[in-house]
Amino acid sequence: MKSSALNLGPAAPALHGPRRVPVAWRALLARRETALLGVIVLVVTAVSLGAHGGFWTRVNLDGLMVTCAITAVPAAGMTLVILTGGIDASIGSMLGLVSAIGGLLFVAGWPVAAVVPVFLLAGAALGWINGLIILCGRVPPIVCTLGTLSIFRMGVFLMMGSEWITALPPGLTRFFVADHLGPLPGAAVIALVIMAALAAFLRVHRTGRRLFAIGNNEEAARLVGIPVRRLRWMTYTILGACVGLGALMRLGQSPIVQTTTGSGFELGVIAAVVLGGTELSGGRGGMFGTFLGTLVVGLVGDAIVLMHIQPFWSGVVLGSIILASVGLNEGRRARQVVS
């Protein structure tokens, strides 16, 4: 109580503003989801006007949806991790390593039906290793996963050297990109199903609710007998499996594995989750926000290509959006602490 009212510096005024009267429209405006929808509308409008009709084409929309799906599946897993107060910065290399393992098995002539589960299992195993180091070794998540980011990448290199794998089954592309269910390519359908499933899991399942409880107050969660360590470990493992699936979908989009596959991928995923309003300190957030965050990240990238802006701007734009959205949110919350 007292310590939360205590703040550590001259920025105190924000903490001591007058009590705010909750007004319905203000509450709605203040919601992260509303802001994200606004950004989406804005970007779509801009790109519709600025890209000379390039946006509303079948090819572009399909490509955009597949790209979003590839981010969305790992982002769904990342939401669970961040909800419980963790983070995983290693998933870019994890995606590369899973792709390398799967790719080599394809090259060795394994049937697709046998390799697909390997993708998921290998991802889950790598996530499990992160969980082991973080939860049994008590290594802070960011330190551990920065380390495994380079360790997994080393693994990719050891398996691949500087070779490329292109001999991948065409079925992947057909299934994830070419086949459609209604207007949606296969990858998008799968991503939506997974997000919906995890959203339902978070909303109605005991374990999902317990993840929120851990993020809210880890100490209290332990006291009421929630197996904190096991559940947090589980989130890293689920994230790993999601990354495995993401790797598979990515091979459908661009059927090539090389040493650099997936490098930088983690940034887009973390950006999507954080943009979606899941708080790094844990306990608040959810899958719908992550869904919208993924759309924003995908749209920004697509708009930059379509509008012939230098691709380097994507980093600047994304970085600024992250800072702005989290900064505004934290400021708003600081004021709420008072009332």
Binding site: M1, R209, F212, A213, N216, N217, E219, A220, A221, L223, G283, R284
Partner: peptide, 8 residues
């Protein structure tokens, strides 16, 4: 001072 989950 109750141990609570504030956002649940």
């Amino acid at each position: 001072e109750p141990m609570i989950f504030p956002h649940l």
